[in-house]
Design a protein around this nucleic acid. Structure first.
Lengths: 215, 215
DNA sequence: GTCTATAAACTGATAGAC
DNA sequence: GTCTATCAGTTTATAGAC
């Protein structure tokens, strides 16, 4: 792996472990066993590293995203989508732990992030519309935007929420599943007929996975 | 006002305006026109200030909180409760903008916060149970905990969510009302009969207030 | 209670040699 | 590409005078 990539990967690890604020360019260089000067050869500064990490995160999400088609089981697609997203949220959770702070220090990163979020909001609305057209849920068109925002809020801030609800311990896989369950919970009251039992089956699946992962 | 209180109030203002990370003890002292040495006479360090601010926030919330009684209009009480909470979230929004970060630096503050959150979760469950017993909503007992978590997540991270969804501009009063609408949105699918129309009336009330406040 | 002065530590960042 | 050396600036925190 190139030194540039190593710096990015190590930064992600250290940021997730100790928080972005606590990790300086010197820490990153020390962890890698390279000199600070070398790090500054590859990146202009810490902001520059953060921008590269965000680009990586965004590309991952764009790559994994598949708009729901009505051909396949729409709920299965939703779940695979949620799996990807929450997995990603876990890999980059430091970013959302310090979101407001990181964005306030970098105008360019902030406008990139805002544009991307706007994109995601549209995709969330498409997902909800897809579930509606597949008769999994029944929802007034006027409520779709609100639900899309709630899904996005939940996904974005699930990891910070979990981290700040308990005194000790890091994020574990079960926390990711619990987050997925929360999104399913948002959909559940709108589910109808067959859709309701399918969602309940999914809930049971993830509850089982939580129990198994905690052993 | 005592110097000690002035320091606390000025800190809150500066933290909200520029973010907690960007404001040092020197900034606070300079803004107040006192010396850094004087500030350190009143507080051990910045952590100490943050602990005092959190205690203030917690006391406000405890004071304003009234468990819903079934005598009065339970929905009116809910709204007055939501008003207080979101108002408070606005006054101390820097705290939630940087929550994970602030708590990770101070074990004592973190355990105080966790204990308080546990408390709030119980109160949220009581509120939901109250709405159920008043027949405003119909919800399975098994779902109450999930809904309580969703309400808490929404309230806690609403201001960071808003701040990070748009490129420019600070929080305004309309943002608070929009947050209240999001909580009502969470309750709405569980509402029944008379309860549903009452919730819709409340939604319309806040939508009107948003429009008026933006003029 | 408040000030001045200052120390000790750390941070981000650069210049120049290899 | 990588290193050593180093700087200028910032931050926290304290000692001692008033």
């Amino acid at each position: 792996m190139s030194t540039k990539n190593k710096i990015i990967q190590t930064s992600i690890t250290l940021f997730n472990e100790h928080g972005e604020r606590a990790i300086t360019t010197n820490h990153i260089a020390a962890e890698l066993g390279i000199s600070p000067g070398n790090l500054y050869y590859h990146f202009k500064n810490k902001e520059d590293i953060l921008r590269h990490i965000f680009a990586l995160y965004r590309d991952h999400l764009v790559t994994n995203f598949q708009t729901l088609s009505e051909d396949q089981d729409v709920l299965e697609q939703l779940v695979s989508y949620l799996d990807s997203i929450f997995e990603l949220m876990w890999q980059y959770h430091f970013f959302y732990d310090n979101l407001a702070d990181i964005l306030s220090r970098d105008e360019i990163l902030k406008s990139d992030y805002v544009a991307f979020q706007d994109n995601l909001l549209g995709q969330a609305q498409e997902v909800i519309t897809g579930l509606k057209h597949s008769n999994v849920i029944d929802i007034d068109d006027i409520d779709i935007l609100d639900l899309a925002h709630m899904v996005k809020l939940t996904v974005s801030f699930w990891t910070p929420y979990v981290e700040t609800q308990r005194a000790k311990g890091k994020l574990i896989l079960a926390d990711i599943y619990t987050g997925i369950l929360k999104v399913l919970f948002l959909f559940k009251p709108y589910s109808q007929g067959d859709g309701r039992s399918k969602i309940e089956a999914l809930q049971n699946k993830y509850r089982t996975m939580i129990n198994n992962s905690e052993v």
